[in-house]
Design a protein around this nucleic acid. Structure first.
Lengths: 241, 241
DNA sequence: ACCTGAACACCGTTCAAGT
DNA sequence: ACCTGAACACCGTTCAAGT
C-alpha cells in the first residue's frame, strides 16, 4: 500500500490525490451532489481547476474515490467473534450508517458496477453465508440477495435524504407521506392505504434490520445440516428394513 | 384519465407533453442517459429548446415522466388468477425486463423517492403479501424487503448495462469479471475468489428469481396459519391428555 | 514534475419577441 | 396559447505556458 516514510519535503499546501479526495468528500457532505464542481473544489484547494486533473482522471473517478474513502473509513468493524447472523447485521448496519452520514455515497453505491467498495461488502457477506452452512452452489445467490437488498435500501435512503434536504424535518416528512398514502384511491391502492399509518412511527433502521432478518430466515432454509446431524428430509422417516 | 374526443384540430406536428415524453424515451433508449438533452430533443421534435419548457417543468420532471411511461407500458400483466408467489415473481420479472430493455429507467427507479412508479410496484407486492397470510404488522416489512431487493437489482443491472454499452458482449464481460475475481488476493477475498467461476455461466434472470424465492421463503416464516389449519408449532406434537 | 488559468465545447434554463 | 431561438450562467475538460 502507501509507504509510510516520505522522503520528499511536503509543503503543507501541496496538492495530492489524498487531499483532493478528502476535500471532495467535505464538499459533497456540505453542499450535496450538485455542489461538487471542479471549480468549487479548486477554489477550496486554492488552485485552478486544471491542477486537479494532474492527480485525478476525471469527475467520475473522483466520485468513486470519494465513495471508496467514505466506506473504507466507516466500515472498519472487526466482527470475527460474532455469530454469522450478528456479523451480517453489523456489515449491513455499517453500510446503512455510512449512507445516513453521507447520502451522496448511497447514490454512488447504487450506481457503480462491481467496484472495490461493493466487492468488499460482498466478500464480508459471503464469508458469513459460508459460515452459516449454506451449500457452495447457493452461496452466491444468498450473498447477492443480501447485497442487492442493502443496495436497494441505500439508494432509497439517499433519495429520501435528498428529498428532505433542509426543507422539513423527518417527522413532518413521514407525516406528509403517510397522509398522502391514506388519501390514495381505495380501488387502486388498498394495500398502501392500509399501511399508511404504520409509516408515521416508522424507524428506517429497525425496518432495514427486519428486512435483513427476513432474508436470513430464507437463507437458513438453504442451510445444509452441520456434519453428523440428521438432514431434515430424512428426519422422522422410518427405515424400512 | 385523458379524454378520447379532442375538439381542437391537431396538426400532426403539434407539440404535446405526450409527444415530448415519447421522444425522450426514444432518445434515452438510443443514446443512453447522457444523450437526453433539451437541444437534441428539440432537434428531434423540430423546435427550439424553449418550446419544451412550455409542456414540461424541467429535466428531472421529464426523466420521471419517461420512467413512468416505460414502466406503465411494460407492467400491464394481470395476475389475479395466480398464486401469490407466482404473482410476486411476475411483478418482479416485469420490473426486471423493463430495466433490461431500458437501463436508464433502472437508474431512475433506484434514485427517485416514493414516486408513482414505485408506489405501483409496492402496492402490487403488498397485496400479494397480504394474500400470503402475513400478519398485518409484518406486511409492510415484507413488501419493503421485496421492493428494496428489486430496486437493488434494478440499479445494479442498469450499472452493468452502462458498463457494457457497446464495448464487449455479455459473455466476454462475465469472463473478464470472473478472471478478475479469480486473481484477487486470497487473504483478503477468499469468498469472492471461491465463487469466481460460478460467474461464468451465470444467468442474471435466474439469479434474480432465486433471490426473490429466498425472500419469499423468509416471508413464509411470518405467515399466520390460514383459518382452521393446524399451526406448525403444534403439528406432530402429541396431545398429553 | 507539477501547477496555472484562459479557452473550448458543451449544458439547463430563461425570456423577449413573435404568431 | 403556444412557439422561437438568442442569451445567460453555468459545467467538465484541455492545453499552452509557466515554475
Amino acid at each position: 500500500m502507501a509507504t509510510r516514510t516520505r522522503p520528499t519535503q511536503r509543503r503543507e499546501d501541496a496538492l495530492s490525490r489524498e487531499r483532493i479526495v478528502d476535500a471532495a468528500v467535505e464538499l459533497l457532505d456540505v453542499t450535496g451532489e450538485d455542489g461538487l464542481t471542479f471549480r468549487a473544489l479548486a477554489a477550496h484547494l486554492k488552485t485552478g481547476p486544471g491542477a486537479i486533473y494532474w492527480h485525478v482522471t476525471n469527475k467520475s473517478e473522483l466520485l468513486l474515490a470519494a465513495t471508496d474513502a467514505v466506506f473504507a473509513r466507516e466500515m472498519t468493524a472487526d466482527n470475527a467473534k460474532d455469530t454469522p447472523e450478528k456479523a451480517i447485521r453489523a456489515v449491513a448496519l455499517g453500510v446503512f450508517d455510512a449512507i445516513d452520514a453521507h447520502p451522496w455515497a448511497g447514490t454512488q453505491l447504487g450506481l457503480a458496477p462491481a467496484e472495490p467498495v461493493m466487492l468488499r461488502i460482498f466478500e464480508r457477506l459471503g464469508r458469513q453465508v459460508q459460515v452459516l452452512g449454506v451449500p457452495a452452489a447457493a452461496q452466491f445467490t444468498a450473498a447477492s440477495a443480501l447485497l442487492n437488498y442493502i443496495l436497494g435500501v441505500a439508494g432509497q435512503n439517499a433519495a429520501n435524504a435528498r428529498a428532505l434536504e433542509g426543507t422539513t424535518n423527518r417527522t413532518d416528512f413521514l407525516e406528509t407521506v403517510s397522509a398522502a398514502w391514506a388519501s390514495l384511491d381505495p380501488g387502486e391502492y388498498p394495500f398502501t392505504r392500509n399501511v399508511a399509518d404504520q409509516l408515521r412511527d416508522h424507524d428506517d433502521r429497525v425496518q432495514f434490520l427486519d428486512g435483513i432478518d427476513l432474508i436470513l430466515a430464507g437463507i437458513s432454509g438453504l442451510r445444509r445440516a452441520p456434519a453428523g446431524a440428521v438432514p431434515p428430509a430424512t428426519r422422522g422417516r422410518r427405515p424400512d428394513a
